[in-house]
Simulated assay, not measured.
Amino acid sequence: MWYRVFAASPEMIAPVRLLEHLAEQGLTVQGHFRGDDLGWTGCQLILPGNEQAPIPLDRYLTKEDDIRDDLNSWAAFLETQDFSPNHGMLMERVIQTQQLFTIRRPIDHADEVTLDRVCETLMRFLAAKLEGIYQIDSKGFFDADGNLLLQEY
């Protein structure tokens, strides 16, 4: 399962701030970040006792990474979802994306409940701080408060 944040703000959230936010939510997570001169580009998040099943979080910048075709595909998908009154607004938000964050949820994780909490907490935090929306495969698109904007069928 994939989780995605489509962020309108180009601001970089410091790695330490991500980990602090998780800790504030009662989630103990280690982060091993990698990056370049533009900031961090990805990390492996590790829950205690689950070193063999890290949670990969990647950060893509619209201006630097070749993701425009992917964003256009998401916008085209949303254009077809005219059963939802939010499809037009969501399409615009995806087009305006400055950063895309992805999490690929591990399938062999020992603590599924905590894993889901980490993924959704990160999505909501990034969406709130970076003027974004988030999407969860087979569930739909959500605002930063976790309100469902478009159900995926």
Rank of each mutant, 00 (worst) to 15 (best):
L61M: 15
D58V: 11
Y60N: 06
H87D: 04
F83H: 15
D65S: 01
Y60G: 02
E92F: 05
L78F: 05
L78Q: 08
A75T: 02
Y60L: 14
D58P: 00
A75R: 07
D58Y: 10
L61H: 13
E79P: 06
A75I: 06
N86W: 01
E79V: 06
L61Y: 02
L71A: 04
Q81M: 14
A76V: 04
S73P: 01
M89T: 13
S84E: 07
K63N: 14
H87W: 05
S84Q: 09
L78V: 06
R68V: 10
E79H: 12
K63W: 07
L78P: 08
N72E: 15
G88S: 13
E64H: 15
D70C: 04
L90F: 00
G88Q: 13
I67Y: 00
H87G: 06
D58R: 08
R68A: 13
K63L: 11
S73E: 15
N86A: 15
N86K: 13
H87F: 14
L90M: 02
Q81E: 12
Q81T: 01
G88V: 14
E79C: 08
D65A: 07
D69W: 02
L78I: 02
D82N: 14
R59T: 02
R68Y: 03
T62L: 07
H87P: 06
D65R: 06
S84R: 09
A76D: 08
L71Y: 02
G88H: 11
N72S: 12
L90I: 03
D70H: 08
Q81K: 14
L61W: 05
D70S: 11
E92Y: 10
S73H: 11
F83P: 07
M89E: 15
D82E: 11
D58E: 12
F77D: 09
N72L: 12
A76Q: 13
T80P: 04
S73D: 15
D58C: 06
R68G: 01
R68F: 00
D82L: 05
L71F: 03
L90V: 04
A76K: 05
M91F: 04
R59P: 02
R59D: 04
D58Q: 13
F83E: 15
Y60D: 09
N86I: 06
Y60A: 05
K63Q: 13
A76P: 01
E64G: 12
D82G: 06
